[in-house]
């Protein structure tokens, strides 16, 4: 276990060691590290995902995919809360000298909240839509990397977040009965509304 933590710290020092050498890179990493920019952008990408189909069949599939993303986020959050309750790992700047480019987060470091959230978007979207899902990867990667670069997470925190995200998304997609009722309700409403054709003034 100790060697794993050492490896994690070594990786952290490599990445975080890049901070403070290039103002442009630091600025860019601060932008991607932001609590709101990437998560909200991924949220808006879900709106695009829901509406980008070519016909009603694709629309239904896409709506189902978006619902599965939200259910995956709920499952991932539950697992994350459990992990946070059981494991208390302090932030890197508590125990070490780091190049901190961010405010001082006061919650536990492991697993990474943003990595869990953003990679849940990615994996869930990817499992539903092999083409569109890949658009979620670059923001998720950038944000996770930026969190290490800015000194607020260890690589191990991010990796744990990625694993929780992948597992939750896989579970929701594999165990169909978790999402089936909500998708059935949404499809029923969609069918009623969009088949309400009329010829009127």
């Amino acid at each position: 276990m100790c060697w794993l933590l050492d490896l994690d710290y070594t990786l952290f020092t490599w990445i975080n060691g890049l901070a403070g050498k290039n103002a442009f890179l630091d600025g860019a990493m601060k932008v991607f590290c932001n609590d709101h920019l990437v998560p909200f952008t991924l949220g808006f990408m879900l709106v695009v995902m829901a509406l980008h189909g070519r016909n009603r069949k694709q629309d239904r599939d896409n709506l189902g995919a978006v619902l599965r993303v939200f259910i995956s986020i709920a499952v991932a959050s539950a697992v994350l809360q459990l992990a946070v309750t059981l494991l208390h790992r302090p932030r890197p700047f508590i125990d070490h000298e780091v190049n901190l480019l961010f405010y001082y987060p006061t919650d536990w470091s492991f697993p990474s909240n943003p990595a869990t959230a953003t990679f849940t978007f990615f994996f869930s979207a990817l499992f539903s839509d092999r083409r569109f899902g890949w658009w979620f990867l670059p923001p998720a990667l950038l944000m996770s990397f930026a969190r290490i670069y800015c000194g607020v997470h260890y690589p191990g925190d991010v990796l744990a977040g990625v694993l929780i995200a992948a597992g939750s998304a896989y579970l929701v997609h594999r165990v169909d009965f978790l999402s089936r009722p909500l998708i059935a309700v949404v499809n029923s409403v969609e069918s009623r509304l969009r088949s309400s054709l009329s010829v009127r003034e």
Binding site: N55, R56, K57, L193, R194, S195, S196, L197, S198, R200
Partner: peptide, 16 residues
């Protein structure tokens, strides 16, 4: 595809 049409193409939500 098994659909009767798409009301969004020509009806407002109020019409629907």
């Amino acid at each position: 595809l098994g659909f009767v049409g798409d009301a969004l193409l020509s009806d407002t939500p109020l019409d629907m």
